[in-house]
Design a protein around this nucleic acid. Structure first.
Lengths: 187, 187
DNA sequence: CGAATTCTTTACCGACCCTTCCAATATTCA
DNA sequence: TGAATATTGGAAGGGTCGGTAAAGAATTCG
């Protein structure tokens, strides 16, 4: 039920989503919503927390908890591509959308965004460290490479949400793969 | 006067900005606004066009119309850094903010975003082509490198708008500089 | 000067916003 | 079963939203 709320905010954004929309999509009564969540803002915070938690899990599962090195990153990119080019892919990333919509006026959103990106860095860094231990890449410049991948993820979210043609997404993904490949020592 | 409107939409976004806000900040009367611009949507389109036009000019001036190669890119990054870390830097980029806010429901916004990113690519590509002619970098992989720089620009917009601490912006910028430097043939 | 036209001001419109209240209903628990 | 508690339904409150109509002021132009 809360998942419906997540999808609605994800689809439309915070300001553009009214409590009436939420009543409609959840089937719950307006009073029940206010009893359970307090206010629209609190409901949004709850939905956003649910979203980021699941996202972080998915990212961790592929990158931090993986066993390979660069291949974990490549598999992760495949997952990203599949999701990004699906019919719901143009919703982008709720964490990014919220950062740009409310980052200027809501401190809790600032913290959410900072934490979210931090989790992403940590997962990517773990995969790169494994790749270094395996001898696939050199151990230097890990931090820079983490930033590069994070930047690509941010960009993909924006570009997908912006309704870009599939070719443009493919171009970014190809560049991302080429970048990772260029790190291989045996190339 | 239109510049005030641009700043307001830039600061708050489309949905969060009311016509009353605009009346207040411009000093113009509400009827005058509707006489001149037709509707809130049209006024926003006008303001957005003004913003993107100026942005593209700034980007072109540094990259497409430059005379050096990689140094033009480095100078451009310096400009980006100065603006990004200024007190108004946390407004991010109106084109990006608008893409994530309205990209899902407004076709003209989709086109604006696609065009905006296209202009960016064209400018960056021009600088990279010059760098290749000068022998600073190899001529291959230009398209991938264009995508990498575009991705960094998108990411910086999101991260800045998200209220990230200065150190995080610095980290992304450092990685961006390191990336460009790594393309140099004589390194 | 005086008539025609443009621009500005004021007041207001219906719709929708988030939220609350209160009566009606369902549920729990003794 | 009967009383206490929680949950629901729908209406309405207080505001703000984007947008407009008509009266008033200023300007143009003969």
């Amino acid at each position: 039920m809360l998942d419906r709320v997540v999808e609605l905010f994800w689809e439309q954004g915070f300001e553009a989503t009214s409590m009436s929309d939420i009543v409609e999509v959840t089937g719950l009564n307006k009073s029940s919503l206010y009893n359970s969540f307090g206010s629209k803002d609190q409901l949004f915070q709850t939905a956003l927390a649910r979203y980021t938690s699941r996202r972080e899990q998915m990212i961790h599962a592929g990158l931090r908890d993986g066993t390979a090195g660069l291949d974990d990153i490549m598999m992760f990119l495949e997952m990203v591509e599949i999701e990004m080019t699906s019919d719901t892919g143009s919703r982008g990333c709720l964490a990014i959308n919220t950062s740009t919509e409310l980052g200027r006026c809501d401190q809790s959103v600032v913290e959410m965004g900072t934490r979210f990106r931090g989790e992403m860095r940590s997962s990517i860094r773990a995969a790169l460290d494994r790749a270094a231990e395996l001898g696939e890449i050199g151990p230097a410049a890990v931090e820079h490479r983490v930033e590069m991948l994070v930047a690509f993820m941010m960009s993909l979210g924006v570009v997908a949400r912006g309704g870009a043609p599939k070719a443009e997404l493919d171009g970014q993904l190809a560049a991302m793969r080429g970048l990772v490949d260029s790190w291989r020592l045996d190339s």
